[in-house]
């Protein structure tokens, strides 16, 4: 990471302390990839793509929350705006899907830089409120500017042809593209977390004053991780817009921010694989209860309350405690 390099005293660890990839992580990643390669032949690909997009979204939030210790309650802003930009680029400008997704991701990054620079000036609870308020501002903006289509959103976004060659209208083809994007994103997050940058981040999370006293420029690290998290959330949102051919106000509303926090929480904050599991659980739940109106909201609320009161480690957190392995 470039930010780590600007530090006056680079982190050099003795060889035996260097962060090596534990073998069980390789095994889990490989197993996961194998599972996801087979999955679309068993389960409905569109459902799987939804899970994948939210898995990436939740993992992006987890990078900020679980490893940076910063609770953003406004991540829908990045997810949603990226989704709008990608949808607009693909539909109105007629760009190929990979360019549309790239543009959307860029929008997430730029917005993340702007909001992050302001939000990191406050801590803890205030940080959560500031991000939520800015996300609401983005929501009102999306409600009023003409290009988002207001209440209708941007519908019938063409999936287009990847690099102008591969037709993505087939769900199965698109699935493998989405898998590539999401898996790449997850590996990137894994790499960030286990880099020296990630270690400093965890140090800041655990004891900020001490990190300051050790000479780390804490705010730079916070901003950097915020922008990374926003960018990856943008990647998830942009991909989602292409998959569902839709960008709507739901994507930028505060309920979306709450949902992704819930996914991270129930899967296990600060675990690599928790957000994936959380996303799968919540998306499945939404699918099953889709016909029951507000019951989805109530159920999500109950899951929130129960998780916070009794189950704070989350699913993967509990498994990690049982197996005594970092997951």
């Amino acid at each position: 990471m470039t930010v780590a390099n600007t530090e006056t005293h680079p982190v050099t660890l003795p060889a035996d302390l260097r962060i090596s990839t534990p073998r069980h992580h390789v095994v889990i990643f490989a197993g996961l990839l194998g599972l996801l390669l087979v999955a679309p032949f068993v389960l409905y690909p569109v459902f799987l793509m939804k899970v994948l997009c939210f898995a990436l979204f939740a993992s992006a939030l987890n990078l900020l929350l679980g490893y940076g210790g910063l609770l953003s309650f406004g991540h829908a802003a990045f997810f949603g705006s990226a989704s709008y930009v990608a949808a607009h680029a693909a539909k109105v400008w007629g760009l190929t899907p990979e360019l549309a997704i790239l543009l959307g991701t860029g929008a997430g990054a730029v917005l993340g830089l702007g909001i992050g620079a302001l939000a990191i000036r406050r801590q803890g609870i205030y940080f959560a409120m500031v991000t939520l308020a800015f996300a609401q501002m983005v929501f009102f903006f999306a409600l009023q500017v003409p290009f988002t289509g207001g209440e209708d959103g941007i519908q019938a976004v063409p999936r287009g042809k990847l690099f102008g060659l591969v037709d993505l209208s087939n769900d199965l083809t698109l699935y493998f593209v989405v898998l590539l994007i999401v898996f790449g994103g997850l590996l990137l997050i894994y790499r960030i977390v286990h880099s020296p940058f990630g270690q400093v981040l965890k140090a800041i999370r655990d004891n900020e004053p001490r990190s300051v006293s050790l000479g780390y420029k804490v705010n730079r690290y916070k901003l950097a991780v915020f922008v990374m998290s926003a960018t990856l959330a943008g990647l998830a949102g942009a991909t989602k817009a292409i998959v569902f051919q839709l960008a709507s106000l739901t994507d930028v509303y505060w309920t979306m921010s709450g949902e992704v926090v819930l996914m991270t929480l129930i899967g296990g904050m600060g675990t690599i694989f928790g957000p994936l599991v959380g996303a799968a659980v919540i998306v499945t739940m939404q699918n099953y209860f889709a016909g029951f109106g507000a019951w989805v909201t109530i159920l999500q609320g109950i899951v929130f309350v129960v998780t916070v009161l009794l189950f704070r480690e989350g699913i993967i957190g509990v498994i990690a405690r049982w197996t005594k392995k970092a997951l």
Partner: peptide, 12 residues
């Protein structure tokens, strides 16, 4: 987070 969950329940 807890009170957010409560808000969702009440509103729902």
């Amino acid at each position: 987070l807890l009170t957010f969950g409560l808000a969702l329940i009440i509103q729902g």
